[in-house]
Design a binder for these strands. Sequence first.
DNA 1: CAAACATATTCGACATACCTAAATATCGGT
DNA 2: ACCGATATTTAGGTATGTCGAATATGTTTG
Lengths: 221, 221
Amino acid sequence: MLDVGNDSREDYLINILRLSEGGTAVGTSALADYMGVSPGSVTEMLKVLKREGYVNYEKYRGVSLTESGYRIARDLRRKHHIMERFLTNVLDMDKDNAHEQAHIMEHAISNDAAERICRITGTNVDPDCATCTDPCTDSVSPVSISISVVEMKVGDSGIISYLSTEDGSVARKLISMGFVPGREVELTSVVSEKGARVIRLGDATLALDRNMASAIFVDVR
Amino acid sequence: MLDVGNDSREDYLINILRLSEGGTAVGTSALADYMGVSPGSVTEMLKVLKREGYVNYEKYRGVSLTESGYRIARDLRRKHHIMERFLTNVLDMDKDNAHEQAHIMEHAISNDAAERICRITGTNVDPDCATCTDPCTDSVSPVSISISVVEMKVGDSGIISYLSTEDGSVARKLISMGFVPGREVELTSVVSEKGARVIRLGDATLALDRNMASAIFVDVR
DNA sequence: CAAACATATTCGACATACCTAAATATCGGT
DNA sequence: ACCGATATTTAGGTATGTCGAATATGTTTG
């Protein structure tokens, strides 16, 4: 990881990642344009970044990320998304503020802390990257097939794998009730097909209306 | 607020606050010692900080915070505490990591975002500043008298004002269940004096053992 | 294949934000 | 009025990041 206070270097890496997403190596001017700096500045920085092992760079040949540079850029983007989602879905900040804050915090938060927040918000296994401005291809990897709580049979239990974030306020409510990925739930009873579900969550048993229950996805075992 | 990337200036302000807590103006060498820099550096910085209106400073006379400097320093300290508490109590990070992270994040997070986190963790009305290394005198101001859920009568309802953080894991569990300051709860029934409390929390009704219920403090209306 | 054009690099310079060490100045007490 | 403690100034250093203009390279095309 780069030291604290190297936001600019980190921004270069993340922008190289963005521009190289298409596959090709990135040109100096393209990067300069994209970042709003002069091509000369870019060349300077690329030399530094190369010296430090974060990019593959040969003069006049364009630039690409090395393994370690990619890791940093990817982590930054991921942290940005996690923070953005946390700020909007959990803290209920508006999109613009959240984006701005996330941009600053992505440089300040450790991977560890971000992962812990991620576990609260369930970003890492969330297939619909609703609040993301650019899709987080890294983090979207729903490995096992999860089913919604409304599809469970009475007596079934399972581990929450993610929450649908289609409706932020529903996700927020669920999270604040303790429905977070990783926790075990059991469907205790069903009032009626269109009615409430009674669910055991750890020490507590509670009832959710159909709509809210349908936003919880679990891996039944 | 200072611009992003002025961590050092902010550190000066916060350290001036710490040293001036006793009442007297702060001397250059004391500050230099405390911060591990040379007295010359301090003098330089004080001139800058004065020019920017954050400190009262006359040569050879020591330094103190202006209103605006105080505001920034106080906010920083508050943000530090909020983050530290969030990282330990909610994210379950160990104390050392949390402290280190909080030190970085205090400079990155906006007051707004911090206040929102505060509302989740209940720092601002929490009388026992358990995880704080230095006590947060600013933020401790329990205005109204809150009572524990175990002291409520059946049928009472009220607004959660804070959670006891004596036992971090209890607080964490409660938070993850949705017991966060500001939410309304109603005591639906009591199984027995030493037994579980059945509590309505928004849409959900759930049961908590006596120990957990006793950690929730509400303002009954 | 060589000029022309686009693109990239180097160079010299500048700005800011820190910092130090050592010389100098000031304050306060005896 | 001097002395010692404390503070400031001075002169200089390092790091980061920037620009613009001169120069070099790569690429396209006639």
